[in-house]
Amino acid sequence: MVTIIKNLINVSINLNEAIKRSKSKSLLEEKDNDRDTQYRNFYHLISGNTHHPDPAISEPALQIQAILDKYGLEVIHVSYASESSMFNSFINDMKSDKMQQALQAISGGVASFEAFEQSQNNFNTTFIEHKEDKANEGTYENASTLKRQVIKIINDQLIGYLHTLQQIDEENFGDFARKVDQIITDSNSKVKRRISIKKDDIVE
């Protein structure tokens, strides 16, 4: 029993790490979508103000638009690394005194730019963490393989061992074996129901 539980714990720990790596990728996509949204918002805000009837607003907007035109909206469709490089360059361009003064002239300009800059910083942080996870990925098994190992240990080794204990010493281990067996059976049934529901949700 001790050996079985020890193996189960070790595999479960590795499974949790694999799940974390999977979540890291999803979080990276979420951060990328956020920075793309913030960049588009800023781009359209400035583009709209280039047509403002007041030159005190349209001229600063045109100055900023000239910077934006170097990157365009296509920048959000390139690879993560290339997009980050160009966004970092764009942020540096916008840090000049001239551009900061131009931002001040646009209603909501400073807030919109700062929201974009923060989203880019958030992505950069998450990207570094994701790259670290990817670097270690080769030393770990994937989540699907580890999940099968957990199921095999529980359904084959643990349940088999409990059944053997029950047969050897019903008085001392019978109730315990049946309770654990029922818990495992209930858990397996819940998993099967979730899988069935997911399949039913798939649109053909």
Rank of each mutant, 00 (worst) to 15 (best):
V2G: 04
V2P: 00
N7R: 06
I13G: 03
N14G: 06
N16Y: 02
E17S: 09
I19Q: 11
R21K: 10
S24K: 04
L27M: 13
D32L: 15
D32R: 12
N33G: 10
R35W: 02
T37R: 13
N41G: 02
F42C: 05
D54Y: 00
D54G: 01
P55L: 00
I57E: 01
P60L: 03
A61P: 02
I64G: 00
D69N: 04
L73V: 05
L73Q: 05
E74K: 06
H77I: 02
Y80H: 06
A81Q: 13
E83V: 12
S85I: 09
F90D: 04
M94I: 02
M94Q: 03
K95Y: 07
S96Q: 09
K98M: 08
K98C: 03
Q100S: 12
Q100K: 03
L103Y: 03
L103F: 05
L103C: 13
Q104F: 00
I106C: 02
S107G: 07
G108E: 11
E114G: 07
E117F: 07
Q118E: 15
Q120N: 10
N124P: 07
E129K: 07
H130L: 07
K134H: 10
A135M: 12
E137G: 02
T139R: 11
E141R: 13
Q149S: 12
I154D: 01
I154K: 01
D156T: 12
D156E: 05
D156Y: 02
Q157C: 06
Q157Y: 10
Y161F: 14
Q167K: 13
E170I: 13
E170T: 11
D175I: 04
K179A: 00
K179L: 00
V180F: 09
V191F: 14
I195T: 08
K199M: 11
D200Q: 12
I202T: 13
V203M: 15
